[in-house]
Computed example of a mutant assay.
Amino acid sequence: MPISGLSISERMWSFYTSNQRGDCPVTSFDQIKNSSTYDTTNAEDPGKQLLDDYRTWKAEQPPRNLPDSKGATEDNLKYLRQHFQGELSLFQRIDAVDTMREMGIITEDQMMDALSLGDSKMRFLRLCDAGLVDGGVNFDAKLDKWTDYFSMSSIGWANNLSKIFELLNSSLRFSGKVDLAEEIQSALNQVTSKKAF
């Protein structure tokens, strides 16, 4: 089964999601790394490599025209709802939070922490998720590092705008930013209400 995407992060995400479905391709970390067309300097550090790959992907995207307002304004929330609909790809998940940073809704440190990319390395344990499926064929400690990262980080489950707002709300409350968390909760309520669409 070919693993799609050009970056090692996208290829590792594809490997991880295939593995969770139980149809994991036979591969190794080195095969995935060598097939990437992006720089793989930080390939053994999933968080750093993911951020590197996202920045490369972001640089390839067309320019956007964000609203002029700053903060959790109705214009900004409307933009987010229009541009981040449905299930988001790996990089779209990061892009949604990065867009919130650009809009002044959150700071860069808050973005990094919420995405499990910051110094705090905030991790989320989801008891309902299956662990890595391992039939003994694909054992590779470097692959395990990536699959562990995806299974324990917010990137793995925050697959739509509502979940991203939930993530930010939790992250901000955890770090003591209750006022901002209340703003995020209000935005979440708007995104999930029928009136918001």
Results as ranks from 00 to 15, higher is better:
residue 50 L to F: 04
residue 149 Y to E: 00
residue 121 K to E: 15
residue 81 R to P: 05
residue 69 S to L: 03
residue 136 G to F: 04
residue 75 D to H: 01
residue 137 V to W: 01
residue 132 L to F: 03
residue 63 P to L: 10
residue 69 S to H: 01
residue 61 Q to W: 02
residue 139 F to M: 08
residue 67 P to V: 02
residue 147 T to C: 04
residue 87 E to F: 13
residue 91 F to Q: 12
residue 141 A to D: 14
residue 122 M to Q: 11
residue 109 D to Y: 14
residue 89 S to D: 14
residue 114 A to M: 08
residue 51 L to S: 01
residue 143 L to N: 00
residue 98 D to V: 07
residue 122 M to F: 14
residue 147 T to K: 06
residue 86 G to D: 04
residue 131 G to D: 11
residue 142 K to W: 04
residue 118 G to H: 02
residue 112 M to R: 07
residue 139 F to E: 14
residue 99 T to F: 07
residue 134 D to W: 05
residue 45 D to E: 15
residue 149 Y to R: 04
residue 150 F to E: 07
residue 70 K to H: 14
residue 136 G to D: 04
residue 116 S to L: 01
residue 118 G to R: 01
residue 123 R to V: 02
residue 54 Y to E: 09
residue 109 D to C: 08
residue 131 G to N: 05
residue 84 F to S: 05
residue 151 S to R: 12
residue 149 Y to L: 06
residue 149 Y to W: 08
residue 114 A to E: 04
residue 130 A to D: 08
residue 146 W to E: 02
residue 63 P to M: 08
residue 98 D to N: 12
residue 132 L to M: 01
residue 97 V to W: 04
residue 110 Q to W: 09
residue 64 R to S: 11
residue 86 G to M: 05
residue 46 P to R: 10
residue 113 D to I: 12
residue 130 A to F: 11
residue 113 D to S: 13
residue 115 L to Y: 00
residue 45 D to F: 13
residue 96 A to I: 10
residue 112 M to Y: 08
residue 116 S to Y: 01
residue 145 K to G: 09
residue 145 K to N: 09
residue 137 V to L: 12
residue 107 T to V: 10
residue 133 V to L: 12
residue 85 Q to L: 14
residue 103 M to I: 03
residue 148 D to Q: 02
residue 62 P to Q: 12
residue 69 S to I: 04
residue 110 Q to F: 06
residue 64 R to E: 10
residue 109 D to E: 15
residue 88 L to V: 10
residue 96 A to W: 11
residue 70 K to W: 04
residue 77 L to V: 03
residue 112 M to V: 04
residue 145 K to S: 12
residue 82 Q to N: 12
residue 99 T to I: 06
residue 93 R to A: 11
residue 47 G to C: 05
residue 88 L to C: 10
residue 92 Q to R: 15
residue 121 K to P: 05
residue 95 D to F: 05
residue 95 D to R: 06
residue 52 D to M: 14
residue 67 P to D: 02
residue 45 D to A: 15
residue 110 Q to M: 09
residue 87 E to Q: 09
residue 93 R to C: 11
residue 111 M to I: 00
residue 97 V to A: 12
residue 60 E to R: 15
residue 127 L to W: 07
residue 58 K to H: 12
residue 84 F to V: 07
residue 126 R to K: 06
residue 107 T to P: 05
residue 66 L to H: 01
residue 67 P to C: 00
residue 125 L to A: 05
residue 98 D to L: 05
residue 103 M to G: 03
residue 121 K to W: 11
residue 79 Y to H: 00
residue 151 S to Y: 00
residue 95 D to V: 11
residue 72 A to P: 01
residue 49 Q to W: 06
residue 125 L to C: 02
residue 133 V to G: 12
residue 66 L to Y: 03
